[in-house]
C-alpha cells in the first residue's frame, strides 16, 4: 500500500504538477495563436518571440523594481512588473500591425504572405530581444519559492517520496484560470467580444452589420499581447528566460492550437494540456515509479524512459502529424487550416 502511495506521489511530483503548469502555459500561448488565426486568418510565427519580448520587458521592469527595493513578498516581483510588460507588448504588436500586416489586409494578400511576413517579424523581434537583453539565460524569480517542499512533505506524511509544489506552478495555474475565465466572459458576454466571434465566423456579414474590422483586429492584437506576455512571464518564472527557448516553444504552441482545433479558444486550452501531458509523460523516466509497483524480480534496470527529453519537440510534432492525418479540424472542430 505505501508502495502504491509512494508511486503516486512520485508520479504527481514529476509528471502531474509540472505538466499541469506547463500545460497552462502552453494553453495561454495557444490561445493567443488561435485568436490571431480566428480573426486575421494566418498562423502567427512571431508569437513565440512576442512572448519573449513581453517577458523581457517584464524582466527589465522587475529588475528596476528590485533595485528600488519594491517587492510584494512572498509573491514574485515580476507580477508587479507584468502590466508594464503587457503594455509594452501591446504597443509593439499594434506597431507591427500598423507597419506590416495592415497593408496586406488592405490589398487582400494571400494567407501565405501573412505567414511569411510574420516570420520576418519573428526575426526582427528576436533581434530586438537579443540586442536588448542578450541571448543568455536570465533568472528573475524572487519571493517565496515553494509552497510545499519535498522535505516538509516527507516529514509531515512519513512517506519515502516527497512532493514539491513551487509558487510559480501554483501561480501559473491560478493566473491561467483567471485569464481564461476573463477571456471567455469577454468573448461570450460583451458586445465587443461577440463582434469578434461574429467577425471570425463570417467576415462579410460582420462588415454588413457595421462591425469595424480595424477595431476587431486591434482588440485581437491587444489580447494576444496580454496572453503572450502572461504566458511568457509564467514560463520564465517557472523555468527560466532564454530567447531561443521561446522561439522553440512555437512548435508545441502550434501543436496545441491545432490539436484543439485552430480558431477555437476552448480547443486551445485542451490542446495545451494534451501536448504538455504527452510531452512530460513520454519523456519521464519510469524506473523508480515501476520499482514501487512491481515485484522485486521484475524491477527494470534501464531508465524506462519512452523518449529522451531531447526529443520533446518530436512529441509535439507527432501529435501534430497525427491530428493532420486523422482529424485536421482538431478535437473541438476548429477551422480547417
Amino acid at each position: 500500500m505505501t508502495d502504491i502511495l509512494n508511486a503516486l506521489i512520485l508520479f504527481a511530483n514529476f509528471v502531474l504538477v509540472p505538466a499541469t503548469a506547463y500545460g497552462a502555459q502552453l494553453a495561454l500561448g495557444a490561445l493567443g495563436v488561435t485568436l490571431v488565426f480566428g480573426i486575421l486568418r494566418f498562423s502567427n510565427f512571431a508569437h513565440g518571440d512576442t512572448m519573449a519580448f513581453g517577458t523581457m520587458v517584464t524582466i527589465l521592469v522587475t529588475w528596476w523594481f528590485q533595485s528600488m527595493g519594491v517587492s510584494i513578498h512572498p509573491l514574485p516581483t515580476a507580477l508587479l512588473a507584468l502590466p508594464f510588460g503587457i503594455l509594452a507588448t501591446v504597443g509593439m504588436l499594434l506597431a507591427t500591425d500598423r507597419l506590416v500586416y495592415r497593408f496586406y489586409r488592405k490589398v487582400k494578400a494571400a494567407p501565405i504572405v501573412f505567414v511569411m511576413s510574420s516570420v520576418g517579424v519573428m526575426f526582427v523581434m528576436n533581434g530586438i530581444v537579443r540586442f536588448i537583453i542578450g541571448p543568455d539565460d536570465q533568472r528573475f524569480a524572487d519571493g517565496e519559492r515553494f509552497i510545499i517542499k519535498a522535505r516538509d512533505f516527507k516529514a509531515a506524511t512519513g512517506m519515502a517520496e516527497g512532493l514539491t509544489i513551487k509558487v510559480s506552478q501554483a501561480l501559473t495555474l491560478g493566473i491561467a484560470v483567471i485569464v481564461v475565465i476573463a477571456l471567455f466572459w469577454f468573448l461570450q458576454r460583451t458586445r465587443t467580444g461577440k463582434s469578434m466571434r461574429a467577425f471570425s465566423d463570417n467576415e462579410d456579414l460582420a462588415l454588413l452589420s457595421g462591425i469595424s474590422p480595424e477595431r476587431v483586429v486591434m482588440i485581437t492584437w491587444i489580447i494576444a499581447a496580454a496572453l503572450a506576455t502572461i504566458a511568457g512571464t509564467l514560463y520564465g518564472l517557472d523555468k527560466s528566460f532564454k530567447p531561443f527557448t521561446y522561439f522553440q516553444l512555437l512548435l508545441p504552441i502550434f501543436a496545441a492550437a491545432i490539436v484543439g482545433g485552430i480558431g477555437n479558444p476552448l480547443g486551445a486550452i485542451a490542446g495545451g494540456f494534451v501536448v504538455a501531458f504527452s510531452e512530460v509523460t513520454i519523456t519521464y523516466a519510469y524506473k523508480k515509479f515501476l520499482r514501487y509497483l512491481l515485484p522485486e524480480n521484475l524491477e527494470p534496470d534501464s531508465l524506462v524512459q519512452l523518449l529522451s527529453t531531447d526529443y520533446k519537440f518530436a512529441v509535439s510534432f507527432v501529435i501534430l502529424v497525427m491530428v493532420l492525418l486523422i482529424r485536421p479540424t482538431g478535437i473541438f472542430k476548429g477551422k480547417v487550416l
Partner: peptide, 21 residues
C-alpha cells in the same frame, strides 16, 4: 445576402444582437 447570411457559431439571439451592432 443569398448565402452565408447568418453567423453559424453564434446563437440566434447573438445574431440579432450583431444585427443591431
Amino acid at each position: 445576402p443569398q448565402t452565408n447570411n447568418v453567423f453559424t457559431s453564434l446563437t440566434v439571439q447573438e445574431n440579432l444582437e450583431m444585427g443591431a451592432y
